[in-house]
Write a protein that binds this DNA or RNA. Structure first.
Length: 412
RNA sequence: GUGCCCAUAGCUCAGUUGGUUAGAGCGCCUGGUUGUGGUCCAGGAGGUCGCCGGUUCAAAUCCGGUUGGGCACCCCA
């Protein structure tokens, strides 16, 4: 079989798949545009520390999933595993703090060295939005609303459910973390090996372990609600009220935590059961500490990212390419006429496929294969009369049309 | 990174306890039609059975390794 293949975990997006892909992206850009999120693009690679420092030294993304390489100058660069850090870096690099608040939309490839699985690739694509500079829950509500709206527009909202949680402010999180560590440390011997590792790395993650032993211990673990301070509780309550007022349904998932360190307060995921284990299609949360962590002016932020491939898999209908007209010249004289004729038709807004080789029969087959709505035949007979034969490819009916009226006759 | 399953024509798959020239449907090509597609008819091309090695008189079939894929874990979009 072919010796030349795409790198593991990457794929070619050929016309049909790419059309779905583009549909997801364009829909998201259009909908977030209605919320006044402006489209931006940041580099596909950054200095490694942009990700290493912000995502959390112990996170899986940093410890084992990054595509890191040295460039010729000796700098360590990394292909972006996600785009929030890149946007934050751009915000700092560009001194954009005077323009706050900012609302950005992005779309593009991300890279993670993971074992490929359904809905999980090494090069995958994300759409996402970020709001910088809004500390209050209004931003959380709008960001979630925009996500819901995108899913609506894609026709996949009813395949998903919104899970919501709060990670609290830093004080609450610290207090809760201490309580959890104290609790789990007491029963450490009952935990799985992986569970003990999480206790060291990220105790919050013990809460959503799927290991039965960990689950058993977690059943009696202290709840976060008891450790949230008033400010955190009020913030979350306002987010919930806002969603209620908008009629956006959600389920509280107290075990929903984020793998990346910079999240606090609101955390949410739109998940689906239709994609196996990779259920999250849009996920995000608030990251008030991120920009300051990177050395920028303390700036609150919130956003989400959505997996284009995952969303595309849920999408059943997407607009098909509008049918074209095939221009079929017969003979050398007609070949010469065909180029300028095709040009004038295209300038009139008509999509024209000009068969570039083959005899009449072959070009008719080609017209059929590409689903042309009409074939325009141009041969000796037609040239002599300054007409073209227009064949309706569905009915097979043919009629002669003067060449100077072709554009009007072919208008969709 | 760990575990389980899978790998035969361009695509989807058959291939019986290892046994002669590995099959089907779809697709592709040619002809029936010298200026006419899609339907129909006739014919044709196309596979070192993922790759490497082993067992055997004999391997697509059994064994080991490897690569790729699927599913789950881990983690995440």
């Amino acid at each position: 079989m072919a010796k030349l293949r795409a790198v593991r975990g990457t794929q070619d997006l050929l016309p049909e798949a790419w059309a779905r892909h583009c549909h997801v992206e364009e829909t998201a850009r259009r909908i977030t545009g209605l919320f006044n999120y402006r489209s931006v693009a940041t580099p596909v690679f950054e200095f490694t520390e942009v990700f290493a420092r912000t995502l959390g030294e112990t996170s899986d993304v940093v410890t084992k999933e990054m595509y890191t390489f040295a460039d010729k100058g000796g700098d360590s660069l990394t292909l972006r595993p996600e785009n929030t850090a890149g946007v934050a870096r751009a915000f700092i690099s560009g001194n954009l703090q005077q323009q706050l608040p900012l609302k950005y939309f992005y779309s593009g490839p991300m890279f993670r060295h993971e074992r490929p699985q359904k809905g999980r690739l090494r090069q995958f694509h994300q759409i996402g939005i970020e709001v910088l500079g809004v500390a209050g829950p209004a931003a959380d509500i709008e960001v979630i609303q925009a996500g819901a709206h995108v899913l609506d527009a894609l026709g996949v909202r009813d395949l998903t459910r919104l899970e919501l949680n709060t990670l609290g402010d830093p004080d609450s999180r610290t207090a809760y973390r201490e309580a959890l560590v104290a609790y789990y440390a007491r029963r450490e011997s009952e935990l799985s090996e992986e569970g003990r590792s999480r206790l060291q790395r990220n105790p919050l993650r013990l809460l959503d372990s799927k290991d039965e032993r960990d689950k058993a211990v977690s059943a009696d673990a202290p709840g976060y609600d008891d450790y949230l301070n008033g400010q955190s509780t009020d913030f979350f309550a306002e987010v919930c009220e806002g969603l209620d007022a908008l009629g956006i349904a959600y389920v509280r998932n107290p075990r929903l935590v984020r793998g990346l360190d910079y999240y606090g307060h609101t955390a949410f995921e739109f998940t689906t059961d239709a994609l196996g284990a990779q259920g999250a299609v849009i996920a995000g949360g608030r990251y008030d500490g991120l920009v300051a962590t990177m050395g920028g002016p303390p700036t609150p932020g919130i956003g989400w990212a959505g997996g284009i491939e995952r969303l595309a898999m849920l999408t059943t209908d997407y607009p098909e390419a509008s049918p074209v007209v095939s221009l079929v010249p017969v003979g050398p004289a007609a070949e010469k006429q065909a180029l300028p004729l095709a040009d004038s038709l295209r300038r009139a807004g008509i999509a024209v496929d000009l068969g570039l080789s083959g005899n009449l029969k072959r070009r008719m087959q080609q017209a059929n294969r590409i689903g042309a709505r009409a074939a325009v035949l141009l041969g000796e007979d037609e040239l002599a009369k300054a007409v073209a034969t227009v064949r309706d490819m569905e009915s097979g009916e043919q009629r002669e049309v003067p060449i100077d009226r072709l554009a009007a006759a072919l208008a969709p």
